[in-house]
């Protein structure tokens, strides 16, 4: 295959990585907006959604074009297979970020003093803690895609177990809060949605890690 193809493939890889970081950035900023009860930051996350979709679609098209024109094989084929899955997972992660931003806007309250109460609730529900584990997993998956260093994703299965355990714990905690004070039901229900999105994002980090492993080794191993 020509050098032209490999140059285009390298360029595509850069763009895929860029999309991945756009998505994880949306998730990170949305969580910060949630913790700080910050509608401006939340709006800024929502505003990035169009760019996220456009870039995802353009990259998908670009990879179909590479397949059609060059019929890549072996590692080149695996690179495209991995990248196609990566962009779809990245888009989902970015959209969960947007969904979390929507929660912030939906539950926003400009009453002075509200912010502290909500921050306490978000922290009480361990959302920042869970978020940092999930974002760490996504970043390591992306870094592994960039460098092909599989040691970065070697513990994804354990990390995902921790995320799943948190999801179940926080779910029970949220219900306890709601039973104690029924005025928190709307807010807590929204927050539990956020926790659910984070759990899904952890799964996407694992999915990306699986495909990066396939890219590097040619082996398909499910991370669960």
């Amino acid at each position: 295959m020509s050098d032209k193809f490999h140059a285009e493939l390298a360029e595509t890889k850069e763009k895929v990585l860029g999309l991945g970081y756009l998505a994880v950035g949306m998730l990170e900023d949305a969580l910060r907006a949630l913790e700080e009860n910050d509608p401006v930051r939340a709006e800024a996350v929502k505003a990035r959604k169009r760019d996220l979709s456009n870039r995802t679609n353009a990259l998908e098209e670009e990879m179909y074009r590479l397949i059609a024109l060059y019929q890549p094989m072996a590692k080149d084929m695996r690179m495209i297979a991995c990248s196609l899955l990566l962009i779809s997972s990245a888009e989902r992660i970015g959209r969960y970020g947007k969904d979390i931003a929507s929660v912030v806007l939906r539950t926003y309250d400009d009453d002075p003093g509200a912010t502290q109460r909500y921050t306490d609730l978000v922290r009480g529900l361990s959302i920042p803690h869970m978020g940092s584990i999930v974002i760490g997993m996504i970043n390591d998956s992306l870094k592994a895609y960039e460098t092909e260093d599989l040691s970065l994703v070697a513990h994804h299965s354990d990390r995902d177990d921790a995320v799943d355990a948190l999801w179940h714990t926080i779910f029970r905690e949220g219900i306890t809060y709601m039973m104690e004070d029924t005025r928190t039901i709307t807010r807590c229900t929204n927050y539990l949605m956020v926790v659910r999105y984070l759990e899904r994002c952890g799964d996407h980090a694992c999915k990306i890690a699986e495909k990066v492993t396939y890219l590097v080794t040619g082996e398909q191993n499910e991370i669960r």
């Binding site: 295959m1 020509s2 193809f5 490999h6 890549p72 094989m73 072996a74 590692k75 080149d76 084929m77 695996r78 080794t217 040619g218 082996e219």
Partner: peptide, 17 residues
């Protein structure tokens, strides 16, 4: 051979490197 060759030489040939 075409999905994941074991030898680097094969990989390089198949991918045109």
């Amino acid at each position: 051979i075409f999905e994941h060759p074991k030898q680097e030489l094969t990989e390089n040939y198949i991918t045109g490197r």
